[in-house]
Amino acid sequence: MLEARLEQASILKKVVDAIKDLVQDCNFDCNDSGIALQAMDNSHVALVSMMLKSDTFSPFRCDRNIALGINLNSFQKVLRCAQNEDILTLKADDSPDVVSLVFESSEQDRISEYDIKLMDIDQEHLGIPDTEYAATITMPSGEFQRICRDLSALSESVAIEAEKNAVKFVCNGDIGNGAISLRNHSSVEKPEQNVNIELSEPVALTFSLKYLVNFCKASGLSGSVKLCLSNEVPLLVEYELASNSYLRFYLAPKIGD
């Protein structure tokens, strides 16, 4: 059986809020290492990969591999019934028909109990190769969100160009063009504004802004975001969570004209 207790319901609420417009039904794969999810969007252009390690929970117990097939719209409805600071416990049997959620207020003597009916989901699983990326950019997640939103007003696509010490986001649209350049930046006083660009070779790739704007819904999960790029491979956008957990998005590039 599965029993997983989260100190703060907000983590799961934010994860589901961040991915539910990209994927609708997905399996939460539970085993002794934690709870994982991998799902592609309908067009097979973007992929979500979530890992909530067992250390994220306290306690965490899962004796067998259990796949919880959940409709994310339903999941979101139930998670909205939890206060952000509630303690959240997920429970399921070994061959479950439902997943149970218990929300407990640490300050009040309130216990809320919900069940969500599970679905059988036949999901394709993709093997993602370990990649040494040519460019890894760490930047404030809010900054990345703003860039994507701003440029999406002008164009469907953005070119991300990483070169020594700088990364440039460039778009060409019907009404005009836009370009935002960021340089390596590190401040002791405001580390949350740091930009770090690690580069082994220059990279230039073009991506659909519609998907990037969607990924940025995860910005509330982490103050910083990591963009990993290599020529001719999908972009990795990673939000790191506590205890080595993460929410990752992969996006296939567009080819030039």
Binding site: M40, L47, E124, H125, L126, G127, T206, K254
Partner: peptide, 14 residues
Amino acid sequence: SSGQRTLGLFFKKI
């Protein structure tokens, strides 16, 4: 839209 590749070109099904 035009020019958009899919992930199947890069990641294999397992």
